[in-house]
């Protein structure tokens, strides 16, 4: 019985795909199961891993946010700019705090609009995202900043470990900020699994009215989720600048779709109420592998978009089709359609 359940889960198929892909890459290039490749993958996982935690919580709650890359970029740029202008030499903690607060404010704006207007969050956040991005590019006249403030430069040169690859003669280092990913994942798991708020997030996505009648304050949960997403985006934005060693204000444009794809691929249902942390991480890992390692397979990079699209359709199609079949079985000859949601 447990095995039967396993076969129905998206996570299972994503796991199989990851294993198959890694074996395939190993056979073709011999470079997959090497220390430095793993370190590279872990490094590439930091940003998508952190962001998808927030995106997953939002999708579980039945919402969606496409403005978080704009929030991340605006918080990052503002923080770096402010730090440079006052020649900041203090602790990195304050810079992260500042960036996180900026993100939090923007996230709460999203949350307030979603609670008030009761329109699809996708369209509301599309609008606010355009505002944030426009504000950064037009009012702040954002440009690439090559030289970061000193505390950031120090942090970006701090490594946890270094892996050498003798055959290729290259080595890769795991940056210190990898710890942030671990913390983000741990906090999200704890929140969703062991707190009433976490239950509330699942309940809200499962059935809004039932959630309200069970005694949850729906608006408060939504404000929390959008606020968290904003704060997380602000924090991740600065992490990204540390990781890249420079501040590139437009480097995250279009990232929202990658993150949503990773979350959905990991078995989170876009209609809400379902989703797991490890599934999301696997989804993010699969997409990272495709963008990072497809080249090791000898597949030209311009195919990666095609593969991503195919994976999204297969991944979502399978669970959607199963749900459809289940409903048909339950309803006999007359399938009752769920209302389609944007």
């Amino acid at each position: 019985m447990r095995f039967k359940k396993l076969f129905k889960r998206n996570e299972f198929y994503v796991g199989i795909t990851i294993v198959a892909l890694s074996i395939l890459i190993q056979i073709r290039s011999g470079q997959f199961f090497t220390g430095n490749n793993f370190v590279d993958l872990a490094r590439a996982m930091i940003i998508p891993g952190m962001l998808t935690m927030g995106v997953m919580m939002q999708i579980i709650s039945g919402g969606i946010d496409v403005s978080f890359p704009a929030i991340a970029m605006l918080s990052m740029y503002t923080t770096v700019k402010v730090a440079l202008s006052i020649d900041f030499q203090g602790s990195m903690v304050f810079m992260f705090l500042f960036s996180t607060m900026l993100g939090l404010v923007m996230g709460l704006m999203n949350g307030a609009l979603v609670c008030w207007l009761k329109l699809p969050a996708f369209i509301i956040t599309l609008g606010t995202g355009s505002i944030f991005l426009g504000f950064m590019q037009a009012v702040l006249k954002s440009r690439n900043i090559g030289i970061l403030p000193k505390p950031m430069r120090v942090l970006s040169k701090t490594y946890l470990l270094t892996a050498h690859n003798e055959t290729l003669g290259i080595s890769s280092s795991l940056p210190f900020v990898f710890i942030f990913l671990i913390v983000a994942v741990a906090l999200t798991s704890f929140l969703l699994r062991y707190t009433m708020l976490g239950r509330g997030i699942y309940a809200l996505g499962g059935d809004r009215d039932a959630c309200q009648r069970a005694g949850y304050n729906v608006n408060a949960i939504q404000m929390f989720i959008y606020g968290t997403m904003g704060a997380l985006a602000g924090f991740t934005g600065l992490t990204r600048a540390v990781l890249m060693g420079s501040c590139q204000p437009t480097s995250l444009i279009g990232y929202e779709m990658t993150c949503i794809a990773a979350v959905v691929l990991g078995g989170t249902r876009i209609s809400g109420g379902h989703g797991t942390v490890y599934g999301t991480l696997m989804g993010a890992l699969l997409l990272t592998m495709i963008s990072n390692s497809l080249i090791l397979l000898g597949v030209p990079t311009y195919w990666s978009k095609f593969v991503t699209g195919l994976l999204i359709i297969i991944g979502t199609g399978m669970s959607a089709y199963q749900a459809l079949q289940q409903r048909k079985k339950l309803a006999g000859k007359y399938p009752v359609e769920e209302e389609k949601q944007v």
């Binding site: 969606i64 996708f122 779709m257 949503i260 794809a261 959905v264 876009i270 209609s271 978009k305 095609f306 991503t308 699209g309 195919l310 999204i312 359709i313 979502t316 199609g317 959607a320 089709y321 749900a323 459809l324 389609k340 949601q341 944007v342």
Partner: peptide
């Protein structure tokens, strides 16, 4: 039965 936002996102890619 894929939600439109996802189907067209995947289709777009």
């Amino acid at each position: 039965g894929i939600p439109p936002i996802l189907a067209t996102l995947g289709g777009s890619d």
